[in-house]
């Protein structure tokens, strides 16, 4: 019945929102107090050797991924998937979820993102040597911010990104598809409930391909970096980062 469906959507939305808030790493309120890096601090980042800045970013991404794994574990049904599929989904989707979550720690007014204790503009990441990737990531965060999503909407969108049934190497595609459909229905229900414009769900769908391009670009940049500095990656990068992104 429609009432039962509405109740089920509300219930799922509630569980996923709770999981999101419990694992979101930073609360918006605590970030409001934070300032931007001063020029001399920006220069310190810019003067870091490329390897050191890559290592720092790999560490930050790995920290964030641990929260995403915790989020995944609390999504209804995720832990009922076989472990192969849990790993496939996290391997393909954890960076995408971080990019979605980034809109929570992004200030579109001055194009800065929370990084290593303060708000940082794209110039902070100059020594990575990937200006195009950084510019694309900032553009993506800006466009996500312009949708003014509420936490509940970010939570459900993140969950649906993670539960993408079209990832390669899934054993039980059908089960993932069912979970994704349930999450997407709950997202649509929440958008309707919040009186969002009709096009928002479709706009979010278009973000999925942007996320995939960003992750592909990250892999490409990592391969190029690793070709020049194989020992840095091997000895200094966090093991979890290597498992996810730098498998041989």
């Amino acid at each position: 019945s429609p009432t039962a469906t509405t109740a089920a959507h509300d219930h799922l939305a509630q569980i996923i929102s709770k999981s999101h808030l419990e694992t979101c790493q930073y609360l918006r309120e605590e970030l409001q107090e934070m300032s931007c890096f001063l020029q001399e601090e920006v220069e310190k980042f810019q003067n870091k050797p490329q390897e050191a800045m890559w290592q720092l970013c790999a560490v930050k991404i790995t920290d964030a991924i641990q929260y995403v794994v915790e989020f995944a574990k609390r999504i209804d049904g995720f832990m009922n998937l076989c472990q192969n599929d849990q790993i496939v989904l996290l391997k393909a989707g954890s960076l995408e979820v971080i990019l979605v979550r980034m809109c929570r720690v992004f200030d579109p007014q001055n194009n800065t993102v929370y990084f290593d204790g303060k708000f940082a503009g794209p110039d902070v990441f100059k020594s990575l040597g990937c200006d195009d990737l950084i510019a694309s990531v900032f553009d993506f965060a800006k466009s996500m911010c312009s949708l003014h999503l509420e936490e509940e909407e970010i939570a459900l969108f993140s969950a649906s990104v993670l539960l993408s049934a079209d990832r390669s190497w899934l054993r039980d595609k059908l089960q993932v598809e069912r979970l994704q459909q349930k999450t997407e229905s709950a997202l649509q229900h929440v958008l309707q409930k919040n009186h969002r414009d009709d096009g928002l769900f479709e706009k979010l769908r278009t973000k999925v391909s942007a996320l995939r391009s960003l992750c592909a670009l990250h892999s490409q940049k990592l391969s190029a970096f690793r070709a020049v500095y194989p020992d840095t990656v091997r000895t200094l990068f966090p093991p979890l980062y290597k498992e996810l992104f730098a498998a041989d």
Partner: peptide, 16 residues
């Protein structure tokens, strides 16, 4: 699998 040792561990740890 050995290839995803840490991810395995994280998934198996009980939710804190």
């Amino acid at each position: 699998k050995e290839k995803h040792k840490i991810l395995h561990q994280l998934l198996q740890n009980s939710t804190s």
